[in-house]
């Protein structure tokens, strides 16, 4: 799947989860750049992404993802149900 499309979908998810329409995610977006992204919100975000892309992150990936770039790499590697 095209990277662009993944970012587009992630952008929607981030805006929805953090309730902020001004969010624009890129590879470097992380929990420091998005203020509401803390350990309480992390799993909400992860579950929303899993649902949208039809995949499951391993516990290792859940705790290891440092930024959106790493997220995209995992999603790309996994292949998803989203149409190209």
């Amino acid at each position: 799947m095209m990277e662009e499309k993944i970012y587009e979908t992630l952008n929607e998810i981030f805006r929805d989860v953090f309730d902020d329409d001004e969010i624009v995610v890129d590879a470097k977006t992380n929990s420091d750049t998005i203020e509401d992204w803390d350990s309480l919100e992390h799993i909400n975000l992860v579950v929303a992404i899993e649902k949208a892309f039809g995949l499951k992150f391993s516990m290792d990936e859940v705790t290891g993802m440092k930024d959106v770039g790493e997220m995209v790499e995992i999603i790309k590697a996994r292949g998803t149900k989203l149409e190209d």
Partner: peptide, 16 residues
């Protein structure tokens, strides 16, 4: 506690 209890618990089917 975060990585082995807090996150796995929240991510468990029941909690979702």
């Amino acid at each position: 506690m975060r990585d082995y209890l807090f996150y796995p618990l929240q991510k468990s089917e029941g909690f979702v």
